[in-house]
Write a protein that binds this DNA or RNA. Structure first.
Length: 557
RNA sequence: GUCCCUGUAGCUCAAUGGAUAGAGCAACGGACUUCUAAUCCGUAGGUUGGGGGUUCGAGUCCCUCCGGGGACGCCA
């Protein structure tokens, strides 16, 4: 089971365990976790383990001594050329130079399935992301969430989870009232009435556009409605339009959701009410100052929270609890939310509420994404939805393209602030790492066009002697290809898509080095065939990785 | 005030508690009569913000101080 490198690693790990048992350091039943992975330093071999160092506490001996004893009992697989004890007590495994040759048939046979894992074992995972208020347009920060969520979902699907992408539509509450009032004000303005713009209203240009569309479609027919009805009717039409434009922006950005979930539907179906009642039955509710409070402090929170206001309207928090209850009741084993870091205060409250309802809070994972700061002309561009001053996702895509935008958003760890230098990202030059990766793919396709002209076909892998691949550039590239599944596993378990971006950049680098030092066409026939298969394997992995990032793999550049 | 991120090369960032802290960009020096030079090869660049602690071993964990960002509402 598993892929080449994983099989080798698994076998060595198992043998190490057995050796530790034989040497009397471990009982056969012991679960003992140790590391066995690629060392940073190439000189330290292909795999290294810290097992001997970890056994010092149990064995009460010096780690190098333990390592020596382990080696006496260790069964060593054929791919391993030599084993060394190094540094404070590492055991380093040096593979035969050509160990990764087998990855070529493995990749060619698996095709685009190469890298697919079963660690998710079909568990149902929901990834909820973006979920921006439909009262405005999507901005850069939403773009980061969109890229992160979508790519994470791709990775989890590849790792064997059953993934559902979801967008939570905040179509209830105060903000909607403000939104309705704002739309009404713009609508009346456009029809020549003098109105005072609401204090907490949305000042953005986009609201004016929306109002203009309504005037175009419906004229002045809403003018004579009673104020409240007029606001609601206009708001409803406007919200629908906004939602459609958000959907379109996201699709344009390469993101498609499985479910669009309406907050209002939770209120209308009575689920919010039911959830509040459930908390009451479980003894976590009390009344104070005319409001209903959730006794979060009983479960370790700093303070209690209002669930139902004095005026009888449930808070956002109440709806969100109902929403998360609903998620788990839909049967997800794992629920992942991607939130802006400004919501971090909400994380522990949410988990506490789930605990109060009897759900395991561990099944909710919130990825806090640090905010995006936009720089233009070396200056910080302030973003505010209320004043309507922000660069939209659409504008960003128009300027830098989907490929660059997605790659930039995901190339960094989610918990690092992202300074997005618009001028730099706009530059269509070699400074852009995404071009570097795409260029590797384009070079391969160009090579194939040459093959076509010369009547060269990709030979069947059985007919080719791969052992002819022996230069450092070729072997490095091979080794890196063999690491792809391990990389996906790393991304999936750490929920960290930026590793994939980095991996592909490295892979492209190994390819470029290979390409510059090894000619594929016009060399001795057997060598040419073997290199052609190596190129094909590279193409498959590059294309697959780019697809997971949602970045195009161009034929030509 | 309490809490959450964060501080690593000139810049932007990597590094499940591991060995001599790595990439890209920028800088400097080289490589195209041969499959795309949007590439490659080489050089240089560091007290990981300061101090203490935990241990075989710390950029990583703990304490403390300093700097940057954010959250603490009957907003969402």
């Amino acid at each position: 089971m598993g892929y080449l490198l994983q099989r080798i690693t698994g076998e060595i790990a198992e043998n190490l365990r057995k050796a530790a048992v034989k040497a009397g350091y471990l009982d056969p039943s012991d679960e003992f976790a140790f590391e066995l992975e690629k060392p940073k330093e190439k000189a330290h071999g292909d795999l290294a383990t810290n097992l001997a160092m970890l056994l010092t506490k149990k064995a009460r001996k010096n780690p190098r001594e333990i390592a020596a004893t382990l080696l006496e009992y260790l069964e060593i697989p054929a791919v391993v050329e030599r084993v060394e004890i190094a540094g404070p007590g590492f055991i380093n495994f040096y593979f035969k130079k050509d160990w990764a040759l087998d990855v070529i048939p493995e990749i060619l046979n698996a095709g685009e399935k190469y890298g697919r894992l079963s660690i998710g074992s079909g568990k149902k995972v929901q990834v909820e992301f973006v979920s921006a208020n439909p009262t405005g347009l999507l901005h850069m920060g939403n773009g980061r969430g969109a890229a992160l969520g979508d790519i994470l979902a791709n990775i989890l699907a590849e790792a064997g989870y059953e993934v559902s992408r979801e967008y939570y539509i905040n179509d209830a509450g105060n903000q909607i009232e403000n939104f309705n009032k704002s739309v009404e004000a713009r609508y009346l303005e456009l029809l020549g009435y003098k109105v005072e713009f609401p204090e907490e209203g949305y000042h953005g240009e986009d609201i004016i556009d929306t109002a203009r569309n309504i005037v175009a479609r419906f004229g002045d027919r809403f003018i004579h409605l009673p104020e409240k009805e007029r606001q609601e009717t206009l708001g409803k039409i406007a919200l629908e339009e906004k939602l459609q434009s958000i959907k379109k922006s996201l699709e344009n950005f390469g993101v498609k959701y499985d479910v669009w979930f309406s907050e209002r539907s939770l209120h209308e179906s009575g689920e919010v009410e039911k959830t509040v009642k459930l908390l009451l039955e479980r003894g976590y509710l009390y009344e104070k100052d005319g409001a209903l409070w959730f006794a979060a402090s009983k479960l370790g929170e700093e303070k209690d929270e209002v669930l139902v206001r004095k005026n009888g309207v449930p808070t956002y928090y109440a709806a969100d609890i109902a929403y998360h209850k609903n998620k788990f009741d839909r049967g997800f084993d794992l629920v992942i939310n991607i939130w802006g870091a400004d919501h971090h205060g909400h994380v522990s409250r949410m988990k506490t509420a789930l605990k109060a309802l009897g759900y395991d809070p561990e099944r909710l994972i919130v990825i806090l994404m640090q905010l995006v700061r936009l720089f233009q002309g070396g200056e910080l561009v302030r973003m505010s939805k209320r004043t309507g001053q922000y660069i939209t996702l659409d504008e960003l895509v128009e300027e830098v393209g989907v490929d660059a935008a997605r790659y930039f958003f995901v190339m960094r760890s989610h918990d690092a602030h992202l300074d997005f230098d618009l001028d730099l990202a706009k530059e269509k030059s070699s400074e852009n790492p995404v071009y570097y990766i795409q260029y590797a793919h384009a070079r391969i396709m160009s090579l194939y066009r040459q093959c076509n002209e010369q009547g060269v076909n990709l030979p069947p892998v059985e007919d080719v002697d791969l052992t002819i691949l022996s230069s450092e550039a070729e072997l490095e590239l091979l080794r890196h290809l063999a690491e792809f599944p391990v990389e996906i596993e790393k991304c999936a378990t750490a929920l960290a898509p930026h590793h994939l971006a980095r991996y592909l950049h490295e892979l492209a680098g190994y390819f470029h080095t290979f390409y510059n030092s090894c000619r594929v066409l016009g060399v001795e026939e057997n060598l040419s065939k073997a290199r052609l298969l190596l190129v094909e394997a590279t193409r498959i992995v590059l294309r697959k990785g780019l697809k997971m990032l949602g970045v195009s793999a161009p034929e030509k550049m």
